[in-house]
Structure formats: C-alpha cells, structure tokens
C-alpha cells in the first residue's frame, strides 16, 4: 500500500519539479493558489465587478448591451435626500427606511447578541449540572434553516398563535404582534438573536477556556471579588475574542435578510424591511426590475461590509499578536 502511494507521489512530483524548475520556487506558489483564485475570481470578484458596471447603467433590460450608461445617476437617486435622518424627505424613501431599519436592527441585534452570548458563555463555563446538554441546547437553533426559524416564530406569534394562547390562558389579553410595527421589529431582533446566539456563545466559550486557570487561582488567593475578577481578568483576556465576535456579528447583522423576510415579509408596511431585502425587491421581485438601482445599493452595502471586514482583519491580527 505504502509503495503504491509513494509511486503516485513520485508521478505527481514530476510536473511539480518541472514547474519549479521553470517558474522558480516563489512563483510556484501561484500554481497552488490558482484553483482557489479562479473560483473566487469567477464567483466573487467577477460578479462584484459586473454589479459595479450595472450600477452605472439604467433601464429595465437584463443584458448589459441593451442598457444605457447613466454614470452616477443611480447613486444620485439613492442619495437625493432633504434630510438623511428622515426617509420621507428622500426620493428613494424605501431605501432610506431600509437603511435606518438596518442601522437600528444591527445596533440592537449586535448589542443583545454579544451581551447575551457573553452571559451564556460565562454560565456554561461554570461547573454546572448537565453542562453538555445546555451547551447543545443553546447551539441547536444555529443548525436550523433561517426559513424554519421564521416559520416557528410566526407560528408562535400570529394572532391565534402559541404566545397569545398562553397569555389568554393566564387571563391576560393577547396582542397582534405581527401587525404592530414596533413589536414586529422587536420580535425580528429577538428571532435573529435566538437563531445565532449559539454560534457566538461557542466562540466566547472557547475564548474563556483559553484563559489560564492559574490567573484565577492567583486572584482567589488575593481575595478578589467575583466582579473584580471578571472586570480585571476575564474581560481584558477575553477582549480579542470579544472584538472578533463583535465584528463578525456586525457583518452578519448588516447582511440579514432571509429569516426576517420569511418572518415578516418586511412589514407591517416597511417597518422591518432591511437593506438586503430592498436590493432583492428592487432588482428581482419588483416590476420593472431596476438592476441599476439595486446594484448601486449593493455597492453602497459592499462599501460598509468592506469597512467592517477590514475591522475584523485588524481585530484578528491584534488577537493573533496578543
């Protein structure tokens, strides 16, 4: 068996030695990178480039050759606002409603997500009974499809749903949760936190377990209070992991679409319409399909995501360098 393997390796070695001889050891790295680069190029960079070109065109035709070049017109349409804080003063009011919904969604979702994940990780890091079971329970929603998550909570929160049945069962009055803009938005944040919290809890838990035990033992010998231990030992040593979690949650938050779309459809009205849904509806589900406007909005979203990704990379570097 071993001899067969070594024979295969010797066969593979021949073209490699040839390439190394022809290209040199440094350039040979590109040969190994090429498959991945080609895949990324075709399925990631090329679509981004095409999208950028579409953002500079107008009309409702699909093929680029049929679309007139309009320069920055689509960006101007999106940016035509009396007051950016008030979508009603904007020409593309739905875009700005979606932008502000996304901003609030990200602030609330990331805030609750990081806070609750930290709390859960701290609890699950203690020596409690059935710790493995609880770890699995908190991680389970991560495994569910976003549409399943949305349907579960829709079933719970609809007018004749589980929650209202429980409330009415204990003598309280039910509520039309999905018809009230504020509640629908609040529940969308809740659902998103519920669905993804397990993933961030897991990262924070591994961060907590990486903190050396002897530091805690030293604090115990110094009679440091639990709060002081948390503030002066846990938090500083967990900070790099926290930063990664924060930036990852931010990126995922900005990209949120499927679960909220399946949960509320963006309603009531546009109360839960997020930026990715706006792009989807403008480019694909609307009539006419305004690919140019959708691409321009995508480019603006891409810019935000690039900034957040740069932050994540920086955080990763800092975390790696200690």
């Amino acid at each position: 068996m071993l001899s067969v393997l070594s024979s295969i390796m010797r066969i593979v070695e021949i073209p490699m030695l040839f390439l190394q001889h022809k290209l040199g050891i440094n350039r040979l790295a590109w040969v190994f990178l090429a498959p991945n680069l080609i895949l990324f190029g075709v399925f990631t960079f090329l679509p981004i480039f095409i999208s950028a070109v579409y953002a500079l065109t107008g009309g409702d035709k699909i093929l680029l050759e049929d679309r007139p070049f309009v320069g920055m017109q689509n960006f101007r349409t999106l940016g035509d606002c009396g007051n950016f804080l008030d979508p009603d003063t904007c020409r593309s009011d739905f875009f700005w409603r979606a932008v502000w919904n996304t901003v609030w969604f990200v602030i609330l979702q990331v805030g609750f997500m990081v806070g609750l994940s930290l709390l859960t990780a701290l609890i699950l890091n203690q020596k409690i009974r059935a710790r493995g079971f609880f770890r699995a329970v908190f991680f389970f929603p991560v495994l569910l499809s976003p549409v399943v998550v949305a349907l579960i909570w829709k079933w719970v929160l609809q007018k004749h749903g589980v929650l209202n049945a429980v409330l009415e069962g204990v003598g309280l009055e039910g509520h039309s949760w999905m018809l009230d803009s504020t509640w629908a938005f609040g529940w969308s944040v809740f659902l998103s936190v519920w669905a993804h919290m397990g993933f961030y809890t897991l990262i924070l838990l591994s961060g907590l377990q990486a903190i050396p035990r002897d530091v805690y033992e030293a604090a115990l010998m110094d009679r440091a209070s639990p709060w002081r231990t948390f503030r002066r030992i846990t938090m500083p040593l967990l900070a790099p992991t926290m930063l990664v979690v924060l930036v990852l949650a931010l990126i995922k938050g900005v990209q949120t679409f499927d679960e909220v779309f399946a949960f509320t459809g963006g309603g009531p009205g546009s109360a839960t319409t997020l930026i990715v849904q706006y792009i989807y509806q403008t480019g694909f589900a609307g009539a006419p399909r305004l690919f140019g406007l959708a691409s321009a909005a995508s480019m603006m979203l891409a810019f935000v995501l690039i900034v957040l990704t740069a932050l994540q990379m920086r955080a990763n570097r800092r975390s790696f360098n200690g």
Binding site: K159, G267, P268, G269, G286
Partner: peptide, 12 residues
Amino acid sequence: AREVWAGQGGNS
C-alpha cells in the same frame, strides 16, 4: 381583516 394588507411588507 387587517392581517392581510397590514401584516406584510414590500409587494408580497
């Protein structure tokens, strides 16, 4: 019935 029109967003 409010659920039909008010319960949705976009053009769903």
